[in-house]
Amino acid sequence: MTTPVPGADVSQESVGPRENTRRWYALRYLRTCTYPATIAEVSEYVGPRVGLAPRDVESALRNRDVPALAGCDAIEFDPESGLVCLDDREPFADRVRRAISADVLSHLKPPRLKRNRQGVFY
């Protein structure tokens, strides 16, 4: 009898590619914040990176992505105030591992995008 390895049964398709991309970018944004951010602020960062207007991303973040990440304790989320953050109680990598193990995030990270002089992402 073999002992199961934690996280070994995680499917590569446990989360859809759009959700996965939004969640990775949200985590990246929250990793740089030194204060709690609103979902609107997170959507301002995520929207251009996924090719949508921030207002189009905000609903998905508010109703699906942020609650999913908070549900596995990858982020801190207060639904009443709408504030989200990462605290410094544990390393970022541990939070990501927990989200992947909970099938909330895939190990497939989106590319890091850079802004050119005109403010356009490439």
Rank of each mutant, 00 (worst) to 15 (best):
A53F: 01
T2S: 05
L86S: 07
R31G: 09
P6Q: 02
E13T: 03
K114V: 15
I100A: 10
Y29N: 04
A99K: 11
G71P: 01
V42Q: 10
E44K: 04
G71Q: 01
L86H: 00
G51C: 02
M1C: 06
A37K: 14
T38N: 07
P110E: 06
A74M: 07
D56E: 09
T2K: 04
R62D: 15
V57P: 01
R117Q: 15
R115I: 06
S59I: 10
R112T: 11
A40V: 02
V50W: 03
A70D: 12
A68M: 06
E13P: 02
E19F: 05
Q118C: 09
A40T: 09
R117P: 00
E13L: 03
N116D: 14
R89M: 01
A99W: 11
L83I: 05
S11M: 13
C33V: 11
G7T: 08
G47R: 00
Y122K: 01
H107M: 10
W24T: 02
W24G: 02
G119S: 13
T32G: 09
R64I: 10
P111F: 06
A26D: 05
G119P: 02
V66H: 07
V96A: 10
T21G: 03
L105Y: 00
S101N: 15
E76Y: 00
V10Q: 06
V57G: 08
P48F: 02
R55K: 01
K109A: 15
V120I: 13
A40D: 02
I100K: 12
E13C: 00
S101I: 10
D87G: 03
P6M: 05
D94P: 12
Y25I: 04
H107Q: 14
V57T: 11
D103T: 11
S43H: 05
P17D: 01
V15I: 14
F92E: 09
E76C: 03
P110A: 02
T34S: 14
R89V: 05
R95K: 13
R115V: 07
L108Q: 09
A68N: 11
P6R: 09
P6N: 04
W24R: 07
V57R: 09
E19Y: 03
V104G: 00
F77Q: 06
Y29V: 07
Y25S: 04
A93S: 11
P48Q: 01
V104N: 04
W24V: 00
R98T: 15
C85F: 06
T34H: 14
A70K: 13
V66P: 02
S43T: 12
E19S: 08
G82M: 00
D87M: 03
G47E: 01
I75V: 12
A60H: 05
Q12M: 10
E19K: 10
A99T: 12
L105I: 05
E58A: 14
V46Q: 02
M1V: 07
R64E: 08
D9T: 15
R23A: 06
A53V: 00
P6V: 03
Q118L: 15
G47K: 04
M1Q: 10
P48R: 10
S59E: 13
V96H: 11
P6D: 04
G82R: 01
E58Y: 05
Y25H: 15
E80R: 12
V120K: 11
E90M: 13
A60T: 09
L30W: 02
F77S: 10
E19N: 11
D56L: 06
K109T: 13
E58M: 12
Y25N: 06
T34M: 12
P67I: 15
L69R: 04
S81M: 03
T34C: 15
R115N: 04
M1Y: 05
C33D: 06
